[in-house]
């Protein structure tokens, strides 16, 4: 048997590796993955919208009621809370989500309000502090009631849960891929959220007209946010892409446009109830 030079001596291409450009392969894979994820997200979104329409308010209250009451601080309602509840009750006559919405006031300085599944609304003290008239406050409360009526709190929850499950099942948690898709799904969620916010603004404006027979003071909250520096113009444009709410200026503008189109009246604003001043 004769020994001859082995494979090391040949100057041929290495057969054990592919010779395509890794960057090109990466780009193709990334684009297809994004396309696939977008498709799945849209389809699941439609599915959730159908499912949410199928759950009636009574069922929602029964399912999430326990969670919602677990959030109750247990203390008897203060004067301020009672006064807020009264305002909500009055607006509910114009905008009924299908169940009694309960309001909680929390001592938090950032101006904000949330709609939680099961018919609980959280309002921060910071929000009350920003308000000068009852109409301005009523708009924010009606906006949250609008979320309840549109079932947005359920849609948002459903999408969040589905997206999280999808990304952990399909992409795994250690592949590093979640880092690629997290910003993408965040942007998708934000766009969905901005649409829902705009719609809640529209519904809220209608409720204000119904309750006060005019819509003056509707944009009070946004104007207050602007003076407080929340809608700062110095933010780069891409921030808007990831923001879950439309920016303050465009919300004020769209409120003006909506009330002009619907022919809503303007009138005198009422002062805040005494307990809230």
């Amino acid at each position: 048997m004769k020994l001859k030079p082995g494979i090391e001596s040949l100057d041929t291409d290495n057969v054990n590796v592919s010779h395509t450009s890794p960057l090109r392969e990466f780009a193709i894979l990334l684009v297809s993955a994004f396309a696939l994820l977008a498709l799945v997200y849209v389809l699941l979104g439609l599915l959730i919208d159908r499912a949410v329409d199928w759950i009636d308010p009574a069922t929602e209250k029964a399912v999430f009621g326990q969670l919602s009451s677990a959030l109750d601080d247990g203390t008897p309602p203060t004067n301020a809370e009672a006064s807020l509840q009264d305002l909500v009750n009055r607006i509910q006559q114009c905008l009924d989500p299908g169940y009694q919405v309960e309001v909680d006031l929390v001592a938090e300085s950032a101006p904000n309000a949330f709609a939680l599944p099961g018919g609980r609304m959280i309002v921060t003290q910071g929000l009350i502090d920003q308000m000068e008239s009852e109409n301005g406050l009523a708009f924010v409360l009606a906006h949250e009631l609008g979320h309840f009526a549109n079932r947005d709190h359920l849609r948002g929850l459903g999408r969040g849960v589905v997206l999280a499950a999808l990304s952990s099942i399909v992409l795994g948690t250690d592949s590093g891929l979640d880092a690629v898709f997290a910003p993408a799904s965040m942007a998708g969620q934000a766009r969905f959220s901005r649409e829902r916010e705009s719609d809640a603004d529209r519904v809220s404006l209608g409720a204000l007209q119904c309750h006060y027979q005019h819509v003056s003071g509707a944009d009070a909250f946004f104007r207050a946010l602007k003076t407080a520096g929340y809608g700062d113009e110095s933010e780069p444009a891409y921030v808007h892409f990831f923001a879950s709410h439309p920016d303050v200026d465009s919300r004020i503008a769209s409120l003006k446009r909506l009330s002009r189109e619907a022919g809503y009246a303007s009138g005198r604003e009422r002062p805040l109830p005494e307990a809230l001043q």
């Binding site: 054990n16 590796v17 592919s18 395509t20 890794p22 392969e25 990466f26 894979l29 990334l30 297809s32 993955a33 399909v170 992409l171 795994g172 592949s175 590093g176 891929l177 690629v180």
Partner: peptide, 21 residues
């Protein structure tokens, strides 16, 4: 890191994992 992400993406679609070859 690049290979790991590329391989993860390839794992999603299946086929030869060029990055690890």
């Amino acid at each position: 890191y690049f290979k790991r992400v590329a391989a993860g993406l390839r794992g999603f679609f299946g086929g030869n994992v060029q990055a690890y070859e």
